[in-house]
Amino acid sequence: MSPTPLSVLDLAPVSAGRGVGDALRATVELARRVEDLGYQRYWLAEHHLASGVASSAPAVLIGQVAAATRTIRVGSGAVQVGHRTALSVVEEFGTLATLYPGRIDLGLGRSGQRRIEAGTPPPAPVSAPAVPAQVVDGLLIPPPFAYARVLASPRFAQASALLHQPGAVPPPFADQVADILALIRGDYRDADGLDAHAVPGEGTDLQVWLLGSSGGESAQLAGVLGLPFAANYHVSPATVLDAVAAYRAAFQPSAALAHPYVIVSADVVVAATDEAARRLATPYPTWVRSIRTGAGAIPFPHPDEVATQPWTAADQELVADRVDTQFVGAPEKVTDQLRTLRDVTGADELLITTITHDPADRLTSYELLAKHWPG
């Protein structure tokens, strides 16, 4: 069996007491180091209006990372196309692919597609039987998280308003993806049959991915188009198996892929001992809570700052699915857990995201994992 590659998903996290510049410089340094460690690709997430995340302009940061490295693939995880036009995406990433041929991944996500509804609170959820947690061949699949509270947040509405022009309505996701692919191929035609050519962008060797958290449109579209697919265990662990199953069921061979290819994400903290890793991960629930309340990711706290903070039952329920599925421990423990994730999901590659207060501890986590990962 061929070794299973490991890759990196980075949010350029800002640590409490440190600045945004520190976070961006740490991202570039981490990319240099993980390239030497053999990680296959380095993806930058897209987050907006969060004081604890500096990756708000992934194309810009991808350019910095690509310039600082030599061979590792660099890309987006993912561009929120609901806030963008197909042409702007292709021109930006086409520029990167022209400067760094054979190294740029264009990951596309559906975020922003429903932004026109952001200013209106969602209807009251219909009560449904609680879905219990289950363990599938050793992999925890927690109950699904209800996102209604986040979507109803004034902060969510504000972000939606700031990310698009007044009155703008994004086209359907499938149409945007089709336009992006056509512009890259060079055969784009509008409704009147008029052609258009993205410069740079057309004819570049961009590797296009779709990212998704469920078995819905993104997974199915990736399959139908024969594109590689990224499924989020670290963001939506309850639906990861649905996502990969829907992708594989819909898959049709294409010029890009003859067979399905799935990368699955995992939130990981590795240290020399289980105790040391647990301490580094102590702020994680507080950080996730800041996201889940709709306020936005806060700067990642120091472990000593949160060790004695009281937690209510509601707080614990808000973050339980993500906290319970974070892989934290010594290398042997975490590699066993990652093997289980790989085997149960059938992942062809694992996408590792790690956040610690001290960037040095984050680097050590990636070093220990690379050293002990059996492939």
Rank of each mutant, 00 (worst) to 15 (best):
Q158C: 02
A250L: 10
A256Y: 03
P237G: 00
D205R: 15
T282A: 15
A249D: 14
E275A: 15
V199L: 08
S254A: 05
L206I: 14
D192A: 15
T204A: 10
P171F: 01
A246V: 03
E217Y: 01
A168I: 06
I184H: 14
P285C: 12
L181S: 05
L181K: 09
L181T: 07
V240N: 03
Y284H: 10
R278C: 11
D179Y: 01
D205G: 15
A168S: 10
Y247F: 03
V235H: 07
V235S: 12
T204E: 12
W209A: 07
A231V: 01
V199W: 04
A152S: 08
A198C: 09
F229E: 05
A266K: 01
L163M: 14
L225I: 09
F173W: 05
A249Q: 15
H234F: 08
A191R: 09
G212N: 02
A161C: 08
G203F: 12
N232T: 14
P166H: 03
S214Y: 03
D187H: 11
G223L: 04
A231C: 02
Q207T: 15
L280M: 13
P166E: 04
L227R: 08
G193R: 08
A174D: 01
R185G: 14
L194W: 06
L206E: 12
L280K: 13
A182Q: 14
P170Y: 04
A161M: 13
L257H: 11
Y247A: 05
L162R: 11
L225E: 09
S160Q: 15
Q220T: 14
N232M: 10
F251L: 04
A168C: 05
L163G: 07
L227W: 06
A271Q: 08
V224G: 04
Q176P: 12
G215N: 02
P285M: 06
Q176W: 00
L162W: 11
P285S: 08
Y261I: 12
P171V: 08
A196V: 08
R155P: 09
A276L: 03
G201M: 11
E202A: 15
G215A: 05
S160F: 13
P171T: 02
D205E: 15
V268D: 00
F173V: 01
Q176E: 11
Y233P: 00
P154F: 01
A243L: 04
S160R: 09
L225Y: 03
V208I: 13
G186S: 15
A161T: 10
L163N: 05
A159I: 15
A161I: 09
P170I: 05
A182H: 08
V177W: 00
L221N: 05
D192R: 14
V169L: 10
V169G: 06
D187K: 11
P172D: 07
S213R: 01
A152G: 08
A178M: 03
P172A: 05
T204Y: 10
A249G: 05
A246W: 02
A157R: 06
T239M: 04
A271W: 03
D187E: 12
V224L: 02
A231D: 06
A243I: 05
P285N: 04
G201D: 13
D187G: 09
L181I: 06
G212D: 11
R278A: 15
A246P: 03
P200H: 06
V262P: 01
D192V: 06
I263F: 10
A230W: 07
